[in-house]
Design a protein around this nucleic acid. Sequence first.
DNA 1: CCTAGTAATGTTATGCTGTAACGGTCAAGG
DNA 2: CCTTGACCGTTACAGCATAACATTACTAGG
Lengths: 173, 173
Amino acid sequence: MAKRSDTGEAPPLGFVEHDHGACRAAALAHARAVCVERGLKLTETRAAVLDILLESHAALGAYEVLRRLGAARGSAPQPPIAYRALDFLVANGLAHRIERLNAYVACARPGADHAGAFMICNGCGAVAEIPGEAAAKGLSRSADALGFDIARAVVEAEGSCPACRAASPESGS
Amino acid sequence: MAKRSDTGEAPPLGFVEHDHGACRAAALAHARAVCVERGLKLTETRAAVLDILLESHAALGAYEVLRRLGAARGSAPQPPIAYRALDFLVANGLAHRIERLNAYVACARPGADHAGAFMICNGCGAVAEIPGEAAAKGLSRSADALGFDIARAVVEAEGSCPACRAASPESGS
DNA sequence: CCTAGTAATGTTATGCTGTAACGGTCAAGG
DNA sequence: CCTTGACCGTTACAGCATAACATTACTAGG
Ligand SMILES: [Zn+2]
Ligand SMILES: [Zn+2]
Ligand SMILES: [Zn+2]
Ligand SMILES: [Zn+2]
């Protein structure tokens, strides 16, 4: 495949093979560091939810998170438990909400600026997070022309990841 | 205001003053033409739902459409009635789904290519539909670099329209 | 005309997504 | 001690969406 150091971009996790154990540990460590730095509390529940999201680079619905949280605890927590933790993670850039799926994914670019864009594979459910600049640039030019002030941009592309394209080429061009 | 003929782009309805009665009639006429051309049936229910969406350039939730449909008929239709009509309109490019809002808006660019992007005003709920090219270009370059095949892109910016910025400038820069 | 097929609508029931509201727990600080 | 504030636990409900099946309407063929 293409080299990836030639553009200076971060490697796009989600579709590429990588040491996910390290990936997960690094994200968790980063979360702890961020919370210390900002005076936030990464409580047991929040850490557990983040860890659940970090199980893979797929997006999980709130109720799926809730189920796994219940399995991890032995009890059966109610929806607000999951939503509050997810809201905390999203508000602090540790996770993202995928609007197209009404689902949540752990942040794959710890510490980045966080105007991210996402590529969602319909085959395997993997989600890759990429810098949003490319899309945001064109978008903000359009917004300027309109006099519109962008507070937040949702950029989500749905399609087939390299692995899924290789596995079922009938849907290709 | 800024001239709008200097870029060759279509005028961005939704945020600009315009003769909305004509806008609505033209959209309805276009819908009829499209259906005739493609051998589709713009039934009473479908036309009614499209007309409801065309009441303004704001997005409506399915249940709000349902309520208005009930008001227009005198009966109280069930959710699938609205969803089926909305699905038909979306499938044929006569309306669009706004993922961020779980809501639907009439197409404001009849006959266009339909890889549109949307600007959603948090103040007044107006939605402007703009050509998606600007964002799509950067996005597809990223996708190519990843080996990702984009089937559909969701591009939705949330913020303040010119009118709402003027009305409440405290949230400005 | 009658019939069979298809497309759309009507109806029932249910599941997924998200939040309001209130009470309990625990730690920090006067 | 007693307040304050942040978080957690629980109940109840609101909003979004679809599966499944019954019914109606339109259409093509006999
Ligand atoms: Zn990973
Ligand atoms: Zn895939
Ligand atoms: Zn209009
Ligand atoms: Zn506005």
